[in-house]
């Protein structure tokens, strides 16, 4: 017995509405950190500029490009599913997962290098240096760390969506799951687009 014309299983708009609401909470989550950044930038402007110079812009730029490519690949996979091109969809999803992996590897080397030169939370170099730089790198690790966790979550979600495409559960008429996975990935990408200038390009 159904009370309504449509059951929620077929309501793709409703599923996307739920996802958008969730994305909204993610933005607020990072928003709290950006508030901290804004306040401390005002208090320690000089130190933040100094700190920004010590970050490797090449690494940051590379990661930005990688994430943009991966976002494109996810969008392509959705179009491919709509056109019933399963192979292309799977290929694009694999490409975006690969991009995510490369991003994390890059991050690993970048963090590793910072650790080597003594820039890590509570390190002697930071404690003895100007307090503003301590805050700058503290925020750098917290924000990029949290973003990294989101990359891992996003990759998991994409992998699940990929399995669904493979199993044929995502069809040209029912692809809300893939689209929601894509939306999540775009959000993770978008947050990086804010992180990159705030930390790497600050002058």
């Amino acid at each position: 017995m159904s009370l309504h014309q449509t059951s929620p299983h077929d309501d793709e708009t409703g599923k996307k509405l739920g996802m958008w609401l969730f994305l909204y909470t993610e933005i607020i989550l990072f928003g709290g950190l950006f508030v901290l950044y804004a306040v401390y930038l005002t208090v320690h402007t000089e130190d933040f500029v100094e700190g920004g110079k010590q970050l490797d812009r090449l690494f940051g730029l590379a990661n930005t490009v990688i994430l943009l490519i991966s976002s494109f690949a996810v969008a392509a996979s959705i179009t491919a599913v709509q056109k019933s091109q399963k192979g292309v969809a799977l290929g694009s999803l694999a490409a975006s997962l690969l991009c995510g992996l490369i991003f994390l590897i890059n991050k690993y080397f970048e963090w590793g290098h910072k650790f080597e030169i003594g820039l890590y939370p509570n390190s002697e170099r930071l404690l003895d240096g100007p307090t503003g730089q301590n805050i700058f790198f503290g925020l750098y690790y917290v924000i990029t760390g949290l973003h990294g966790i989101h990359i891992v979550i996003g990759m998991t979600v994409l992998a699940v969506a990929m399995a669904y495409v493979q199993a044929g559960k995502i069809t040209p008429t029912r692809f809300a799951l893939l689209e929601n996975a894509g939306l999540y990935w775009h959000l993770v990408d978008l947050i990086w687009i804010f992180i990159f200038p705030l930390f790497y390009l600050i002058i």
Binding site: N122, T131, N134
Partner: peptide, 10 residues
């Protein structure tokens, strides 16, 4: 122990 809320660490 980053010190985000600790005045002695900025």
């Amino acid at each position: 122990n980053i010190g985000l809320f600790d005045p002695s660490k900025g």
